[in-house]
Design a protein around this nucleic acid. Structure first.
Length: 410
DNA sequence: ATGTGTTTATCTTAGT
DNA sequence: ACTAAGATAAACACAT
């Protein structure tokens, strides 16, 4: 298998994708051209200016310097064990190319601001040098990367292009081979029931929908492993609806008999896209947040769209009835689990949980020395603060797109 | 034309 | 070894 990486000619354009009211906070000024080592020089030489900003990015990922899987005995929390065990030596070859220079990160909060800033800056500078010629693939699955992007949005939903932007801003590795991984991102969004598409409202024109998390899929990585979930999230209601729709649609009856292996579904109407909002999959948790009205509007609009989109009257009625019923059931269920699930009542449930990192970022934890305008950078500061001390010397750190910050993030 | 979204197929990898 | 999750490639439809 040659699998020579395709080099795309696309340069990701961020500036005019959607202009109004995008409920997202990611810096959108960076255009990352695809993929060669020369392009990595865009990260620029380390300057005093960037030094001041670097500590925001003392995020960590990587593998043990000696290449081995760490024994579970040595390291503090179960979550950190899971994180490290999830690293594959073959997968993150990039980090093998790093220099052997080691960084001692002192992440104690007891240090004075100056000391901590100095240490962090030194660590960042060192990491910068190490990182300059090698960008290891971060130990996060695409699903977890998408989840991070969504969770970091105040509105808890964002567009595809914003997901791209978050990933590229956060992980230099993904400034390369964009065509490849962006296809995978799109596949992940469509394929996984944990991601729910939210249509745009008419007053927010633009390409693509918003994506949010299924309200039952907000704790997929609470065990601390962001590479592989123990169980793929599947929405039973969606599955049931799919089956119901398939079996009750006369157009599918003959197909289901004849083409068990058929490839024709490419031309069939998609289920996920049209059914999400009808299922009431928009989280009531999210409805507590700033976009509740917006999302409710989306749901209503989508319902009305479906009732008049050319289906037969019978189909439309059945859809509407089923949607209403499912939506009510979903809300009841959500209210129920929210009453006792610790994940919803205690956001600090787990030190490595995304929700924990979000909380730290949102409340300014780890942002003492940093510009807090870019939430995603604070995420990594928070992650760094949670880093077990035993790992600190062997971690692979990475740099943010310093130019974006230096230019004010716009 | 380009971006977005869906789906199938196939391969790799982690977990057991 | 087996299974399931995830990654990758690709074809295609549709929206902007």
């Amino acid at each position: 298998m040659s699998s020579s990486p395709k080099t795309s000619n696309n340069v990701y354009q961020t500036n005019n994708m959607h202009q109004v009211g995008v409920p997202c906070c990611y810096p959108s000024s960076m255009n990352y051209s695809t993929a060669n080592s020369a392009n990595m020089s865009m990260m620029g030489p380390l300057s005093p200016t960037s030094m001041n900003i670097m500590p925001t990015s003392v995020g960590v990922y990587g593998q043990m310097a000696n290449g081995g899987t760490p024994s579970t005995a040595s390291y503090g929390t179960q979550s950190s064990i899971n994180v490290l065990n999830s690293l594959s030596p073959t997968r993150y070859q990039g980090s093998n190319q790093m220099s052997t220079e080691k960084v001692n990160i002192n992440n104690s909060n007891n240090n004075s601001m100056n000391n901590a800033a100095t240490v962090a800056a030194a660590a960042a500078a060192s990491a910068y040098r190490r990182n300059f010629n090698a960008c290891a693939k971060p130990p996060y699955s695409y699903i977890s990367l998408i989840t991070m992007a969504i969770q970091l949005c105040p509105s808890k939903m964002c567009t595809l292009s914003e997901i791209y932007q978050f990933i590229m801003d956060s992980f230099p590795y993904y400034r390369q081979n964009q065509q490849r991984w962006q296809n995978s991102i799109r596949h992940s969004l469509s394929f996984n029931d944990c991601f729910v598409k939210v249509p745009r409202s008419p007053d927010r024109p633009g390409k693509g929908s918003y994506w949010t998390l299924h309200n039952e899929a907000t704790n997929m990585f609470e065990n601390g492993c962001y590479l592989r979930r123990q169980k793929r999230f599947k929405c039973p209601k969606r599955e049931a609806f799919r089956i119901h729709h398939r079996d009750s649609n006369p157009r599918n009856l003959d197909k289901s008999n004849t083409s068990s292996s058929g490839r024709s579904p490419l031309s069939s109407s998609s289920q996920k896209s049209s059914d999400d909002s009808q299922h009431g999959l928009i989280s009531p948790i999210n409805q507590h947040r700033s976009t509740s009205l917006l999302q409710n509007n989306f749901i209503h609009q989508q319902n009305s769209i479906h009732q008049g989109n050319g289906q037969s009257d019978t189909d439309s009625r059945n859809h509407a009835i089923a949607a209403t019923k499912l939506k009510q059931e979903q809300c009841d269920f959500n209210n129920h689990i929210m009453s006792f699930d610790p994940h919803f009542s205690n956001i600090n449930y787990h030190p490595f949980a995304i929700s924990t990192l979000m909380q730290a970022a949102a409340t300014g934890d780890g942002s003492k020395f940093y510009d807090s305008s870019a939430l995603n950078y604070n995420l990594y500061a928070a992650a760094s603060a949670n880093l077990p001390q035993a790992f600190s010397s062997d971690y692979y750190m990475y740099a943010p797109p310093t130019q974006a910050l230096a230019h004010g993030g716009m």
